[in-house]
Write a protein that binds this DNA or RNA. Structure first.
Length: 468
RNA sequence: GGCGCCGUAGCCAAGUGGUAAGGCAGAGGACUGCAAAUCCUUUAUCCCCGGUUCGAAUCCGGGCGGCGCCUCCA
């Protein structure tokens, strides 16, 4: 079996074939840095993280580029409202974004190009389109891409330009365009832009939204690369326009595989500020959940499936993760036990890893992948109960579990498990009380430990302490 | 109006022609001094109505319900 992915361009699942053997270039649409990213945004970044980790798991070397949109209507509007420069304003949210990326254990991209650092690349791209006569400058001073002069337009979304509802959501000042479907490449400076603007062959202004992704993706990945991702809402017009601009300017195919993830909804409803169900990562953390718990929630639904977020789901995730943690803890301990033979462990491990791999290779089918993990946990626990796994066998099982986690990224961070001397002493006293069959005292000590946040588990090999 | 997605146990969620994975929660049991952890057993007329088929959650038609995109929203 090999990796297959659902390509939005062909609307079918197809084998993934990289342009260069063994190497994959991935571009993902990143945040517009004008506020805190919400959990819906992170759903998309989580899916991209899963893709990236799966590609690596399958042996590919991945180059990942994620843009930061730091100049657009909203960043300009809100920075002015805040009375600070665009750069100072977006810097705040860039910082917050990277903190969140870290909390959610998203693997960092290789490049995070910001739009404002690549204005030159965009001007060059627009220049190429002007030279080819595909773009034009309208009476309002802005430069537009002419769909009429690019018949290949509309590969991703089957839109009929004639059917587009002119005027409905098109601001009046855009009537300068030759056709409603034309989109801005360069927006002429206007009063609301304040200090923000760059000089160009078409006068002072700023780039349109779509052009940044075309310019920055080809800058870092070349004009033709493997995979481009984003949320479904970006298919049209953003990605459609990117394809048109890039292919028209560069004269070659832009992207081989387009992947889009479905949206996240909350308790069955669209997430919105007015509905009061709008959550940022920080909101979730304030409710007492940790990054990996939200990570699990965002990861556990297939990316093309609408994800229904709820705090119940966070609770479920916590319990599921504790099960994984407990299993790993047992395995760690068991590596120190006597060798119980590696046959059963090895066979079961290979089988589990294969099932896990097969599921992911099937368009990142996470549910069966997780099922493979939990089946493995159950069988592994059974072998541990039976005492048929120890020493090298346990190490083998542990190795496979950690290999799985290289994709999931949800297991307990190692943390040296430092047990305070005081806790250790109480546990020792409790054990002594148990030996003396003074159970009332033993239970009192256990309650005391519990109040301090520690759980005692009595195993055949002695008590085990863990944070609860 | 155009394009598209979805409806499977109390909750989340796979499966897309041969009588239903997995997680959480619940029930019973084993283990334990009691617990915890773990294991075993157990919990589904697959939204409705027709149709195709030897056989449908799975394909087709029609309903009902939820969600998304249609110019800068992941």
């Amino acid at each position: 079996m090999a990796l297959t992915l659902y390509n939005s361009l062909t609307r079918r699942q197809e084998p993934f074939v990289p342009i260069q053997p063994g190497r994959v270039g991935v571009y993902t649409c990143g945040p517009t840095v004008y506020n805190m990213a919400h959990i819906g945004n992170f759903r998309a970044y989580m899916f991209e993280d899963l893709l990236k980790r799966t590609l690596r798991f399958c042996g590919y070397s991945v180059t990942h580029v994620m843009n930061l949109t730091d100049v657009d209507d909203k960043t300009i509007r809100d920075s002015r409202a805040a009375g600070i420069s665009l750069g100072d304003f977006t810097a705040r949210y860039k910082k917050a974004f990277f903190e969140d990326v870290d909390t959610l254990r998203l693997l960092p991209a290789d490049e995070y190009p910001a739009a404002t650092d690549h204005i030159g690349d965009m001007i060059a791209l627009i220049g190429a389109l002007m030279a080819k006569g595909i773009a034009y400058q309208a009476d309002d001073g802005s430069v537009y891409f002419s769909i009429a002069r690019w018949p290949a337009y509309g590969q991703l979304v089957k839109v009929d330009p004639a059917r587009m509802r002119a005027g409905e959501r098109v601001s009046l000042d855009e009537y300068a365009k030759e056709s409603v479907a034309d989109f801005a490449l360069w927006k002429a400076w206007s009063e609301e832009d304040g200090e923000v603007g760059w000089d160009s062959p078409w006068g002072r202004g700023r780039p349109g939204w779509h052009i940044e992704c075309s310019a920055m993706s080809s800058r870092y990945l070349g004009p033709h690369f493997d995979i481009h991702c984003g949320g479904v809402d970006n298919m049209f017009p953003h990605h459609e326009d990117e394809i048109a601009q890039s292919e028209a300017a560069n004269g070659c195919r832009f992207v081989n595989v387009w992947l889009h993830c479905a949206h996240l909804i909350v308790d069955g409803e669209k997430m919105s500020k007015s509905a009061g169900n709008f959550h940022t990562l920080r909101d979730v953390l304030e409710r007492g959940y940790c990054g990996r718990e939200l990570r699990y929630v965002l990861l556990a639904t297939h990316y093309r499936q609408q994800l229904n977020f709820s705090f119940q789901a966070c609770d479920d995730a916590r319990a599921a993760l504790q099960r994984l943690d407990a299993f790993r803890r047992r395995l760690r301990e068991a590596t120190a036990f006597a060798d119980a033979g590696t046959g059963a462990a090895k066979e079961r491990s290979e089988q589990a890893l294969e099932a896990f791999r097969a599921a992911l290779e099937d368009d990142l089918n996470i549910s069966p992948a997780l099922a493979a993990v939990f089946d493995f946990v159950r069988d592994g626990n059974r072998l541990l109960d039976e005492g048929t796994v120890g020493g090298p066998g346990a190490a083998e099982v542990l190795r496979v579990l950690e290999r799985m986690d290289s994709v999931l990224g949800v297991m307990e961070a190692d943390a040296g498990e430092g047990i305070p001397a005081e806790v250790e002493a109480l546990a020792g006293a409790r054990q002594a009380a148990r030996k003396a069959r003074d159970f009332a005292r033993a239970d009192a000590l256990r309650d005391q430990l519990s109040a301090m946040g520690w759980t005692v588990e009595d195993t055949p090999k002695g008590p085990r302490l863990r944070r609860s």
